[in-house]
């Protein structure tokens, strides 16, 4: 099951790159593409945390959550400015 979850996580990482790139290209803005890619990478982190619930994957997922919050917050403040 661990190998399957790792494969699913890898698929989500690739999907994040492709979907984030596609949205960024379609809207001609990195602001729209980056949150999309981060959403998929978050899904990958959650799948990896299910496959191997150790400190390393836990720290990696926490880092993705922190970056995601930071990006969402900075994009929100840039939009309201």
């Amino acid at each position: 099951m661990t190998a399957l979850l790792q494969l699913a996580a890898l698929c989500c990482v690739v999907a994040g790159l492709v979907a984030g790139g596609a949205v960024g290209l379609a809207t001609r803005s990195l602001r729209a593409g980056l949150p999309v890619a981060l959403d998929f990478w978050l899904a990958a982190g959650l799948l990896r945390l299910g496959a191997d619930p150790g400190w390393t994957s836990l720290l990696a997922t926490a880092a993705i959550v922190a970056v995601r919050r930071l990006v969402t917050w900075s994009l929100g403040t840039a939009r309201t400015r």
Partner: peptide, 27 residues
Amino acid sequence: AGAVVIFVGAAVAFARFLVTAVRTRDA
């Protein structure tokens, strides 16, 4: 079950993102 839900959600969203990206440029 949790992993299946996350993976199916990601797969559905991936397809919808690509279709929407082809159809529109509105963020």
